[in-house]
Nucleic acid binder design. Structure first.
Length: 177
DNA sequence: GTACCGATGTTCT
DNA sequence: GAACATCGGTACC
């Protein structure tokens, strides 16, 4: 059975949500029709106390604004001038936490999207999705189809050398290939 | 497998 | 003006 994930699902702390999102399906409707991908790797970005997060120390700017919104909103930003990264906002209003989707598998063709920039490129996610609500939007949402996830592995997050001791946190979660 | 490199544009200091 | 939650390429081992 397939069902759309609702608000309560997203209102978890960011580490719990990062694990819970594994195996779920991202659906995006765009110019080329419906694209879907199953999440197989995530990273948690904590709020005020995580030096790796854009919202570290509750930094609130035009870019990080959506991180302070209720769980289930979409945070998209451009990195290195060419790649959009897709994040799912966790927890509740004014607790700025987000889950980065690092790796997924396209349902159409079984293509492996091994990198956050490849995930957004395949799905067609860009700045127009910034701030949308995954529980309400008709062009971007998440589906639970009761996929058997199996064992979840954990490791250090990637490319956050600037984060000091927080780079040691085991906040990357993934399923076996 | 690891190591570097350039491309590219927005954000924040 | 520096930094950046990346990628695809080349080089080498």
């Amino acid at each position: 059975m397939e069902k759309r994930l609702g608000r309560d699902f997203y209102r978890q702390d960011v580490v719990s949500l990062s694990r819970a999102l594994l195996g779920k399906i991202i659906c995006v409707r765009g110019d080329e029709g419906l694209k879907r991908a199953r999440i197989i790797e995530t990273e948690a970005y904590g709020g005020a106390n995580d030096k790796a997060a854009h919202s570290y120390n509750n930094r609130r700017t035009a870019r990080t604004e959506v991180m302070f919104w209720d769980g289930g909103h979409v945070y998209v930003y451009l990195i290195y001038g060419m790649h959009y990264l897709f994040n799912v906002i966790a927890n509740r209003e004014n607790i700025p936490e987000g889950v980065m989707i690092r790796c997924a598998r396209a349902l159409e063709g079984n293509l492996v999207l091994n990198g956050p920039g490849k995930v957004t490129k395949y799905l067609g996610i860009d700045r127009k999705h910034y701030g949308l609500d995954l529980t309400k939007a008709d062009n971007i949402y998440m589906i639970d189809d009761d996929y058997p996830v199996g064992e979840i592995f954990a490791g250090k997050r990637i490319n956050i050398d600037y984060a000091g001791e927080d780079k040691e946190r085991l906040w990357r979660f993934y399923l076996k290939k």
